[in-house]
Design a protein around this nucleic acid. Structure first.
Length: 168
DNA sequence: AAGCCCATCCGAA
DNA sequence: TTCGGATGGGCTT
């Protein structure tokens, strides 16, 4: 059983989903329909139950962190469902500090698979937990943003708001 | 077991 | 600036 709550936030519509082990998805989209469809696609084999955000153990904390980012993300249990390789990559993602960016090649080195660059990029794209697992801080080697599951525009917004020293 | 997809990278023209 | 080859994990057949 997977429960989820939805609401509005500064980046659009926000979805937080959790299992009995912790948060298993955080999604961003323009409309609630898009969020539900992608949740159903990701967890096709699980029953889903919608919960009022006010009754969710996680929604308000995630929502607040998005509205008012703090230096360190809230310490919430995450239920990362993926292969061993994907978990390695996602773990390496959590080591990236706010305001810091890495190339996919650097992330591949940090994850111990320096030549598996595209595979690492694919693992980033397979991450279902937006913002708490900061995959938006990984960009291409040439400085261009690269892709983002929840919209390239949101990736740029997140990077811009985290940039500590804007250049002039 | 084979084939295709992919949020990459780098060198060459 | 574009192009093609190398690359490896995941998913479907």
């Amino acid at each position: 059983m997977i429960c989820y709550s939805m609401g509005s936030c500064a980046l659009g519509q926000l979805l937080v989903a959790w299992s009995d082990r912790g948060i298993c998805a955080v999604g961003l989209a323009d409309t609630p329909d898009q969020l539900i469809l992608s949740l159903q696609a990701d967890f096709a084999d699980h029953p889903l139950q919608k919960i009022d955000p006010a009754s969710s153990p996680y929604f308000s904390t995630v929502h607040r962190f998005i509205e008012v980012p703090s230096a360190s993300p809230p310490d919430l249990p995450l239920d990362l469902m993926g292969t061993a390789f994907q978990q390695r990559v996602w773990q390496a993602l959590t080591d990236i500090l706010p305001g810091q960016t890495l190339s996919y090649a650097q992330l591949a080195r940090n994850a111990g698979k320096p030549s598996a660059i595209r595979a690492v990029a694919n693992a980033c794209g397979a991450n279902r937990i937006a913002i708490l697992v900061p995959c938006h801080r990984v960009v291409r080697s040439d400085g261009t943003p690269g892709g983002y599951r929840w919209g390239a525009d949101r990736k740029q917004t997140l990077l811009a708001r985290e940039a500590t020293t804007p250049d002039h």
